[in-house]
Write a protein that binds this DNA or RNA. Structure first.
Lengths: 196, 196
DNA sequence: TTTTTTGTTGATTGACGAGTCAATAAACGT
DNA sequence: ACGTTTATTGACTCGTCAATCAACAAAAAA
């Protein structure tokens, strides 16, 4: 009993199912059948709407990035002052929505995907660029341009590293603990400034 | 014309080929055929010596970890004083041998492998444990036990994050620049100590 | 009402890849 | 000389999976 206007619903279901399935399996080695089954439809329908597995992965990645970006923007909107803005970025990065088991697992695999797929690489570059520019903007108040760039670079890498480690520990994700690590880094770097 | 005593040679060739092939492709999606061809033998022979793809991956990972561990131990051997020891760890981590394109790519995929294979996870846990214990040992002089643990945790994550980012940038790896980032982190954390 | 558009699936195809096997050949021990 | 161990491969089996197709169902348009 075909209902009309299914396309956005099915696409959303597939995107969500893709993220969950990649996160659960911990690798990109998921079949279209698994994704489609979790989304409650046949493999043929999945192909009908997305045209291929690759497009599904890309859409899932874009969605993850979009959600993250929206959350950051939202938190940034109500934050005043550089420190509050930094805190907002951390809060969004380790929020309950983004720092979930499957999502973190999916992130890791998006990095892998970016190694082979130029489109995925571009998406990731956009994300990294935005994060860095946000951080630099916050840091420019207390640090010089060059320093701010270096610290932002390190903070980005640190956040990625914390995500990476979270993906490995089987336990439940602890966003608060993760944020503490990054916060300590930022506090120390801002407090001192020059190193070596 | 079968020469005797080929086993170790072939195994080494396969391990090396596995690392290169994973690093080049940027994913674990490499066929036994590709690995075997690069190692200059038939797929059947690869299976003969390793019994399966999984074992090849594990051996490659173990090898990478062993090389890294040996290099750290070597550098640590001639270092005196906590600061020199920290520097030795950084030097080994971002040395020309370990911080190479294919090796970094392989690392990333070992993390992915660890999500599904318990054996890979164990190997990685050993590596992380050794790194942390090394770092804590160095830091205990200037920081308290709890502080040292937190800083070591962060440093480990930061190193992983820097590796992760290196895997993405197509450019030639710059170990010196990478070391600077981590060095700045350690210097800042040791200089101040308590944060927030 | 007919036609077209949208939704939906079971079955099929075609490719690819892991792992196995039987066979060959050289060295080694006796 | 002869059996045994080690090295080596081409050919094969078996399963899996992405992608396609033909067909059917229902709503919308004509």
């Amino acid at each position: 009993m075909p209902k009309l206007g299914m396309e956005p619903i099915r696409k959303a279901a597939l995107v969500s199912a893709t993220i969950v399935e990649i996160g659960r399996k911990g690798s990109l080695d998921v079949t279209v059948g698994q994704i489609a089954r979790r989304a409650g439809m046949s493999t043929a329908l999945a192909h009908h709407y997305f045209g291929g597995k690759e497009a599904m992965f890309l859409a899932a990645m874009r969605h993850t990035l979009t959600v993250y970006g929206a959350e950051v923007r939202g938190a940034l909107g109500v934050a005043q002052g550089p420190e509050a803005r930094l805190e907002a970025i951390l809060l969004a990065s380790f929020s309950a929505t983004n720092f979930r088991r499957e999502v973190v697992g999916a992130w890791l695999n998006f990095y892998v995907l970016a190694q082979t797929q130029p489109a995925a690489r571009r998406l990731l570059a956009v994300y990294q660029g935005r994060l860095r520019s946000n951080l630099v903007h916050c840091l420019c108040g207390t640090l010089g341009r060059a320093e701010a760039l270096r610290v932002a670079e390190g903070a980005g890498a640190l956040i990625d590293g914390v995500y990476l480690r979270q993906a490995l520990t089987g336990g439940a994700p602890d966003g608060a603990a993760a944020a503490v690590v990054v916060r300590a880094y930022l506090a120390a770097q801002c407090g001192r400034g020059r190193a070596s």
